[in-house]
Design a protein around this nucleic acid. Sequence first.
DNA 1: ATAAATTTTTAGATTAGACTAAAAAAAGTT
DNA 2: AACTTTTTTTAGTCTAATCTAAAAATTTAT
Lengths: 223, 223
Amino acid sequence: MSTHSFTEENYLKLIYALVSRGADEVSTNALAEVTATRAASVTDMLKRLADKQLVHYRKYQGVRLTDEGERLALTIIRRHRLWEVFLVDKLGFGWDQVHEMAEELEHIRSDELVERLDSFLGNPQFDPHGDPIPTPAGHMPAAPSQKMADLLPNESACLLGVLDHSAAFLQHLDRSGLVLGCTVNVSEISPFDRSMRVTIPPGQTLFVSYDVARNLLVGPTKA
Amino acid sequence: MSTHSFTEENYLKLIYALVSRGADEVSTNALAEVTATRAASVTDMLKRLADKQLVHYRKYQGVRLTDEGERLALTIIRRHRLWEVFLVDKLGFGWDQVHEMAEELEHIRSDELVERLDSFLGNPQFDPHGDPIPTPAGHMPAAPSQKMADLLPNESACLLGVLDHSAAFLQHLDRSGLVLGCTVNVSEISPFDRSMRVTIPPGQTLFVSYDVARNLLVGPTKA
DNA sequence: ATAAATTTTTAGATTAGACTAAAAAAAGTT
DNA sequence: AACTTTTTTTAGTCTAATCTAAAAATTTAT
Ligand SMILES: [Mn+2]
Ligand SMILES: [Mn+2]
Ligand SMILES: [Mn+2]
Ligand SMILES: [Mn+2]
């Protein structure tokens, strides 16, 4: 029943994120980068997390989560994503506005609160950015992995998520009319800059730059 | 645009509460009591709050809020009470379960979040305990002040709030069938222990001890 | 294999917020 | 008024989380 500080919880979440998109162990510098602190501060914190058995840490060798550390990281991510659903679905925020608030809300300590929130929201499977919501037990469901940029001409797919979570990118999608869940059909790909011409539901045509397409995740269309 | 720590916000809220139910200035010891810290720690914090112009503080003379300090205290109280309404009305928590969670939620920093939450909840005027919700501008509406213990035989009144917020008291009310909003009619008061016999809506009779009656707030019945 | 560059750790300092023990001020009593 | 008790402040210590500067280990390049 030990309790953890916001700071510790944030480190765990970031270690999880770095491990899941890359190497097996995370470097001190990589963590200093994402925590916006100095390497010396990271070393300090890694020692503390190792004391609490939340990470495996060997000097100069980088760090990875223990089972308990990963379980904890996933509950924080679960909370973050459920609160984002609340903010968008219930309070009407835009998907580009909710990240900072969820960064705070995810630390509210109450399992019952999270589980009641989950049912209030209708047990959503994905957050507003298409990221899967971990189970209460701490299991991360599979996420879509195919990028829109990998589609071939004439292929259709369903828009499922974003890789770039920046407000600028999300607002660009809003302006383009690209919405999660919508079906896109690739009509043409320019060999020069890999930009795509795609059509979306009510017969609308639009151009998608490679920079956008490689940050969009797609999956099979709902038949 | 300055930002305040959870600790600072809690001190402001507690100073507000102590001032509103008592003397003009709050003593160091009184604050040590309610913050569950030592007097020396309180003195430290009062100096810091005075530096930030949130309190008027004179050595050995106690402390009171500045205008800015009071405005801030009231926004924290507003947030606390709105989150309590959310937890009870939307997530189905009991009124005896929500205080600790609201203690954390009240510190989430986003004015827009609070205002959207307010409309989502239907702009409630009172929290689940009958406490009035301050306005966004920082004005505390008048609260009911008449105690059920002050009713006379044959008087009717509407149950509007509680003075004791402890889970034990609230659960006792649940078991008795006393619910905020219900109309009570005093049929008899024992001169021995000041206990009351009261009737509530579907013709139910119940006994209310003085200890309970002096912790219940009442107002005129809705004609 | 050495030297140079990079990464990581250690050492020492700082800040917020708490603590204890002792000094000082205020309040209460004879 | 002088003594006693209570309250409050000061002085000094501690921990979590940060920092900078310097030392040590590792990696890369010659
Ligand atoms: Mn987010
Ligand atoms: Mn998200
Ligand atoms: Mn409360
Ligand atoms: Mn309340």
